[in-house]
Amino acid sequence: MAAISREEVANLARLARIEMTDVELDHLATEMDVILGAVARVQEVAGAEVPPTSHPLPLTNVFRADVVTPSLTPEEALSGAPAKADQRFKVPQILGDAE
């Protein structure tokens, strides 16, 4: 049984903002099937009583003081920009709304 369809992979590629050709999608769907088949065994061992670990060390409450430290210069900030104008990052037109 295929665990994941090409359409699902296409939706994942959309969420991940990666353009993919149909050939790539087919290929990836097949690979994902194999990989998911192998990793799904994580569901076998841990019961509801096992708490999840998201962080290896039990640290809490790590805060910094509210103190201003030097920023980059705008030149440094923009140094890697593929395009810039008016001391801002220049990007293709943004369609769609912000959250």
Partner: peptide
């Protein structure tokens, strides 16, 4: 829950 969540639980078991 089935994937990321379970994997994190396995992490607990490994620790």
């Amino acid at each position: 829950d089935a994937y990321y969540g379970s994997a994190q639980k396995v992490r607990t078991l490994i620790s």
